[in-house]
């Protein structure tokens, strides 16, 4: 059976596949907002997984291009779940105690408009090699 009979069919299929592989496309692209989510045992226990799922689907719903990566323990176990947000050209900022409500606020204010919200953890280390 022929699956694609017209240009519209092709476009529809392209769109549906693109959503599946855009994690790869985002990795290739430059200048996107990066969000790292601490997903060590402490983070996961505190609900980081839900936060990541929520943020991924929310940003997509709102049509925002954000790269999500999970990372290891950032060392702020007291403030889990913690996430680190890097806007293009800016220093990374770490937010603590991120629940779904906080996540929503971060997306809506900081990621969208660059407006800082409560809950910032001062970074206490230097990183090498990005």
């Amino acid at each position: 059976m022929t699956k694609i009979k017209s240009l519209a069919d092709l476009k529809a299929m392209k769109q549906s596949v693109q959503e599946k592989i855009d994690t790869r496309a985002k990795g290739k692209a430059e200048g996107l907002v990066q969000v790292k989510i601490a997903m060590a045992t402490c983070g996961i226990a505190a609900g980081a997984k839900n936060v990541m799922d929520y943020m991924m689907s929310e940003t997509e719903k709102r049509g925002m291009d954000v790269v999500f990566t999970q990372t290891g323990c950032m060392g702020y176990c007291h403030a889990e779940p913690t996430i680190e947000v890097t806007l293009p050209g800016k220093e990374p900022i770490v937010f603590g105690y991120v629940d779904l409500k906080k996540a929503d606020e971060i997306i809506d204010k900081y990621i969208k408009d660059g407006e800082l919200v409560e809950g910032i953890i001062p970074v206490n280390y230097e990183k090498i090699n990005n």
Binding site: I4, S6, D9
Partner: peptide, 11 residues
């Protein structure tokens, strides 16, 4: 199978 080769491609 997807109709991108064969007859009457994309109508």
């Amino acid at each position: 199978e997807y109709g991108l080769l064969g007859e009457d491609i994309l109508g």
